[in-house]
């Protein structure tokens, strides 16, 4: 890796994003709109005494979902475009190292995810009065980590798609099972054993558990830190696998 090439690559990806104002607007606005929906859905629901409100539980986890879903989509399409327009082939004839490209995407879309998570969290805390025992900074940190994980998975999955239609189909394949089994709909310890086993190997389960830990405890817990390490490890693993799919020579 070369710092000059890496920073040029991050700058290039962010500039591409900046020229696409509509995508930037969607990135920032859509989470707020969805949070508003959730707020009014649960506004009149009674909260059992001593428990967090339904909105607090769901909004907290949603703050982790947004960057995960959106950055996965954005990355798989962006990387697929590099492959189909020939820019990837050209890049691989230049001094750019594979890591410069992969980490370039990780950093650039990680930053985009940070902006998204920051805005969504600000709205959730200040407009809708989201309550978490732990700090909002930890919530944003976990959300950004989710964005990086999603970028890594997107880079990997783009290798298995030939067209943008196929790339979009990977969203339900990769994202939906993680959403369903992460413990938001049914607590993980109440699932059938085989479902738990699947849930245990899906990285989003750990991200959601980490968020729930922040929601329930004033100080960061050991469980939260373990979960954060698992999610970061999954992101690194996906990046390494993505690097293995990038071949300078092709037939």
């Amino acid at each position: 890796m070369n710092p000059r090439i890496l920073s040029a690559t991050v700058g290039r990806i962010l500039r591409q994003l900046r020229h696409d104002r509509r995508t930037v607007a969607l990135l920032v606005v859509v989470p707020t709109v969805l949070l508003t929906l959730v707020y009014y859905m649960y506004n009149d629901q009674p909260t059992p005494p001593g428990q967090p409100s339904a909105f607090d539980q769901i909004a907290l986890v949603m703050l982790g979902f947004f960057p995960f879903i959106i950055m996965f989509l954005v990355t798989s399409i962006a990387m697929l475009r590099e492959r189909t327009t020939g820019t990837l082939e050209r890049l691989l004839t230049t001094p750019l190292a594979k890591a410069d490209l992969l980490f370039g995407y990780g950093i650039a879309f990680g930053l985009a995810g940070a902006v998204q998570a920051g805005v969504a969290s600000a709205v959730a805390y200040w407009v809708f009065g989201l309550n978490t025992a732990g700090s909002s900074g930890l919530v944003i940190m976990i959300a950004v980590l989710n964005a990086v994980l999603a970028v890594a998975l997107g880079l990997l999955c783009s290798a298995f798609a030939r067209t943008e239609f196929q790339a979009v189909q990977f969203m339900p394949v990769v994202v939906a099972p993680q959403l369903l089994l992460c413990g938001l709909f049914v607590p993980r310890d109440q699932m059938a054993g085989w479902l738990q086993a699947i849930s245990d190997v899906l990285p989003l389960s750990y991200a959601v558990e980490a968020l729930q830990e922040v929601g329930a405890h004033t100080e960061p817990t050991a469980t939260m830190w373990r979960d954060v390490v698992v999610v970061a490890g999954a992101a690194v693993l996906a990046l390494l696998l993505a690097a293995a799919t990038l071949r300078r020579r092709s037939s």
């Binding site: 591409q16 820019t87 050209r90």
Partner: peptide, 12 residues
């Protein structure tokens, strides 16, 4: 290397 199809970023 110049590829046959222009390989530049259309959104830059």
């Amino acid at each position: 290397y110049l590829t046959q199809a222009p390989s530049v970023y259309a959104d830059l």
